[in-house]
């Protein structure tokens, strides 16, 4: 018998006896602790199925209007030490990109070919390491910034949702020291349930091989629990939205 069969057989054997529903134990307020009395046992499939949509009612609150969601995203991004800016026009955005390039003295950037990222690279006017048709990892590592698009911005958490398809592969958003995201304002979604619904609607069943919620620049607290940015991934995260 294969290990697969053996493990599945052990699981099925073990599940012959049902376990009490969670929360049936240990509630303060003096409910007796009855352990495995017959009343505490639930049949394997009985009971209410917590719809994941239920989660929305418990998660941090998000306002209904675009303005509220935008303000929340901006606040979260600031808390996370990400640089978020919303621009009225593409012209304003490319001016700001140029200022960023000059302030940090970017010599070369890495990016992928998509509408916004290509336009951004044109505005940057620096040699580009494109990831679309394979790339040299050492060359990307030498880049000063990685410029990508994204799938969504999540107001609830200040996160950027990227995938291997929307953001030029797996490494582009983590290898260069500065990750620059160019997003459209229509990409702002309210919360995590909405972001997962978006992934399902956009990709299922052929999901990209990597989907990542990026919530602020890379960080660690492994030395005396003191926050340091840029542990392995980017030290800086810039989100320019138009």
């Amino acid at each position: 018998m294969s290990e697969r069969k053996k493990i599945l057989a052990r699981i099925r054997e073990a599940l012959q006896t049902a376990a009490p529903r969670p929360g049936s134990h240990a509630e303060p307020g003096g409910k007796p602790h009855t352990g495995l009395t017959p009343g505490g046992i639930a049949a394997r499939s009985a009971g209410h199925d917590p719809a994941a949509s239920e989660a929305r009612r418990w998660l941090p609150k998000v306002g209904g209007s675009f303005e509220e969601q935008l303000a929340l995203f901006a606040q979260n991004a600031a808390d996370l030490k990400a640089n978020f800016q919303l621009f009225a026009s593409w012209q304003d955005l490319s001016t700001a990109l140029g200022q960023l390039r000059d302030a940090e003295n970017w010599q070369r950037v890495a990016s992928h070919q998509a509408e916004l990222s290509s336009q951004a690279c044109a505005a940057l006017d620096r040699p580009v390491c494109w990831t679309d048709r394979g790339y040299d990892v050492l060359a990307m590592e030498q880049c000063d910034a990685g410029v990508t698009e994204c799938d969504a911005l999540i107001a609830q958490t200040g996160s950027v949702l990227v995938t291997s398809r929307s953001a030029g592969g797996r490494a582009l958003s983590v290898l260069p020291p500065h990750h620059v995201v160019i997003a459209r304002r229509s990409q702002l979604v309210a919360d995590l349930p909405a972001a997962f619904a978006l992934l399902q609607a956009k990709y299922a069943p052929e999901f990209p091989s990597m989907m990542s919620f990026i919530t602020g620049p890379s960080r660690t607290g492994d030395i005396e629990r003191i926050l340091v940015l840029g542990a392995h991934g980017p030290k800086k995260l810039t989100i320019f939205c138009v």
């Binding site: 958490t157 983590v174 990542s212 919620f213 919530t215 890379s218």
Partner: peptide, 10 residues
């Protein structure tokens, strides 16, 4: 609120 990278591999 959320760790920095939460990544699903398919």
């Amino acid at each position: 609120p959320l760790t920095c990278y939460n990544t699903m591999y398919a």
